[in-house]
Design a protein around this nucleic acid. Sequence first.
DNA 1: AAATTAATTTAGATATAGCTAAAATAATAT
DNA 2: ATATTATTTTAGCTATATCTAAATTAATTT
Lengths: 220, 220
Amino acid sequence: MNLTAAEENYLKAIYHLSDGASKSVSTNDIAAEMKTKPASVSDMLRKLGEKGVINYRKYYGVNITPEGKKFALQTIRKHRLWEVFLVEKLNFAWDEVHEVAEELEHIQSPLLIQRLDAFLNYPKFDPHGDPIPDEFGDVKARPRVPISEMEIDQSGQIVAVKDSSAAFLRYMDKVGAYIGARVKILDKVEFDGSVEILVDQKKSIFMSKDVASNILAIQS
Amino acid sequence: MNLTAAEENYLKAIYHLSDGASKSVSTNDIAAEMKTKPASVSDMLRKLGEKGVINYRKYYGVNITPEGKKFALQTIRKHRLWEVFLVEKLNFAWDEVHEVAEELEHIQSPLLIQRLDAFLNYPKFDPHGDPIPDEFGDVKARPRVPISEMEIDQSGQIVAVKDSSAAFLRYMDKVGAYIGARVKILDKVEFDGSVEILVDQKKSIFMSKDVASNILAIQS
DNA sequence: AAATTAATTTAGATATAGCTAAAATAATAT
DNA sequence: ATATTATTTTAGCTATATCTAAATTAATTT
């Protein structure tokens, strides 16, 4: 069974909205996520239901099925592998890759993805720090902590951002923070929760609690 | 102005059928090339005519316009760059790349193609020996001669095949001939036009006139 | 429990890209 | 010059993926 590009996109959105579990998701939420109208969503849910990738009870939202989860994870895998390719091989900036990857992920060729994976040396995380599912849909999870929750003198590595809006990514670039950067907490201001960190053992950055809680790290 | 994937494919077919010039092309020929029905072609010709990429006079076939030629060459450029990528970076065999490149060529991102071109070191020819148009649509032409028309003791390099069917490409692989191979004509049998060639100064191959006239080389 | 509001679905559009069958036009043969 | 054949176009239908507007269902208030 094959899915159209539109179906793959809906399924991916449903997977994300259900937090990777089979939590129930509403028509309106899907419409917001997909930037389309609830009426269009209803139609698509009927189709996805018929294909067995979601359980659909009219008026009661949907749950993704195990089969659907498999499809969603494959699409996510393709998306993230292309992102790695764009950043590591074609020198795209990590805030420029999303739209192109959004197109590339729908290319239908298992062989292509297999070869791409090998070419990229089987990466486990994309440029945003998100894990890349393997061909069976298994993901290597990393426990992530917002920088705001780390203690003084603790070290770690930035692996993701919660808010990946262009504005926030530009901010990151500007102050010299990036996915993969080694960080160490220099100081925390108790009054407002703001934080001072050392990046790559040389550059010190001061940030508000809001910013610090948007940046996720693995501790080391 | 943007073209859909289907429109790009039609335009490419029309460009090929008119031999790169603005020769007139018939509805039936386009239908055969596109493996679709003449009725569908008529419909598409109307649309392409409205977009100004072809000149369309009902019942009299079509001519590609300079604007259309530009679009066709860009699509061909994308297709051939992806083929180079698949063969050189992802280790695809050169007879496996067409279908995937057929999908990849429709990804809409000028930046992507620019970067891909640089990553591949600005290749001028694809794995089949066909020239890759530059971003302005200019192509580096190579005068090609069928091996069957070369003289005894002449040397050259295989740059393309006329018939690029999977069957023929498999034959090429089997006997050890490939695009880029250095060849020298060892013998020609006058009676049936069959030819014996030396590949890469070591392997001798004997082939019928039919095969020899399918393999194109530049002489050196 | 009925009325209001919010969420969701259905009905009826549009646009793209394909199809078949019938009609129209052009080319060829008698 | 007319008839036949080949080619091409039109008309009407199918499927996908959207949309708006109207109808329906569920949830919440009073």
